[in-house]
């Protein structure tokens, strides 16, 4: 049964080392057809434009990526209607994006970046401006890849996990209920009536 709410990739911050293997895999899986990127770095002829952004501080690191919000602010503010809901996921149509940056400002997680948009090895032409086209770039959960998110597959420390919030809740509910059973058992006050 398809998930009622948007799936998203969540990070186990204890396991993530900040190695960016996810960023490289993400770039590769989205550019095999578009910029004929192969399996080796040598086949890359365009700048690496990932859709998730590893962020590192002294004590920890994690890739920040789209949560596919249900009332997504980015979709709400996009006047160009370039952001739409496909199934339960939020998808950006990079060709339609005019780079107005509203979605970047609306997203509270910083999960969207404005990155150059390359097709066939060349930056897509911008109507008249000298620089090439840029577009909003955010996680699309590899919704066209039958094997699911590439980042989850390549993470050397298995820190990334595809999360269905309803399925997780069911599991946690059972554990919480069992815990309450233990609490009730230990509480004489609950058992005997005066």
């Amino acid at each position: 049964m398809p998930s009622e709410f948007g799936l998203f990739v969540s990070t186990d911050i204890a396991k993530c080392s900040g190695c960016k293997a996810c960023e490289m895999a993400c770039f590769q899986s989205h550019n095999i057809k578009r910029n004929n990127v192969g399996k080796t770095v040598g086949t890359i002829s365009v700048p690496v434009t990932p859709k998730l952004y590893v962020t590192v501080i002294e004590t920890a690191s994690m890739p920040v990526q789209c949560k596919h919000c249900e009332n997504s602010p980015c979709k709400a503010v996009c006047q160009q209607k370039a952001i739409s809901r496909v199934g339960s996921q939020i998808i950006v149509d990079e060709a339609k994006c005019i780079g107005c940056k509203d979605c970047l400002m609306a997203c509270p997680f910083g999960a969207i970046a404005l990155l150059p948009f390359y097709v066939g090895g060349r930056q897509a032409p911008q109507a008249d401006s000298s620089g090439g086209k840029v577009a909003a770039s955010k996680c699309d959960l590899c919704y066209e890849d039958p094997e699911g998110p590439a980042c989850v597959r390549v993470c050397p420390n298995e820190a990334l996990r595809l999360t269905d919030v309803n399925e997780e809740r069911k599991k946690k509910n059972i554990a919480a209920a069992e815990a309450l059973a233990v609490i009730n058992a230990g509480d004489p006050g609950r058992r005997a009536l005066s």
């Binding site: 293997a21 490289m24 895999a25 990127v37 080796t40 770095v41 597959r153 390549v154």
Partner: peptide, 13 residues
């Protein structure tokens, strides 16, 4: 040697 983008391809390479 040519550097792999994803280490998960090492086995095949």
């Amino acid at each position: 040697q040519p550097k792999l983008i994803c280490d998960t391809d090492a086995g095949e390479a």
